[in-house]
Amino acid sequence: MRPVFMLFALLLAAQTLTASAQERAVPEYSAELEAEAREVGKSLRCVVCQNQSIEDSAAPLAADMRQLVRERLAAGDTPEQVRAFMTTRYGNFVLMKPPFQLDTLLLWLGPGLFLLLAGAGWFVYLRPRAQTPGLPEDLTADERLRLSRHLPDEAGS
């Protein structure tokens, strides 16, 4: 039978794999390096998980990647170099924050574009024009009456 929950499969895989990870002694790193490594780890996506950073993931490959991140930082790599190292091997997929490049142009400029469109829409729709204030002429008397009944009076609003 097909496993029903992807998560379940994930957990099971993680569990069968942890055995070998435990046999290695983990060298201790300084607190600063540890903190920097955690930042880098949070910016890298676990490639075998559904949607987690390597820092959050319980998958064994993520654990090895965490270890590698620490070793490279200890060897003097900058966070950027560590990310580049992972990107050359796994592609842009590993970056939680996609790079700014040609095919992500729309992604990065999109929000600004949306805001611009929305602002333009608001101004175009509400552009003041020198016209008589008050109710528009195209309402019939009946409609005006109905409208006035449905509207609470304006005082204080």
Partner: peptide, 26 residues
């Protein structure tokens, strides 16, 4: 924005066969 970020990987995959991730930083 949420829509764009959520579905952008799909768009890229459909157009260029590349895989990208759009995560919390974005």
């Amino acid at each position: 924005i949420v829509f764009l970020g959520t579905f952008y990987p799909l768009l890229i995959d459909a157009l260029t066969h590349d895989k990208i991730s759009v995560g919390p930083p974005y």
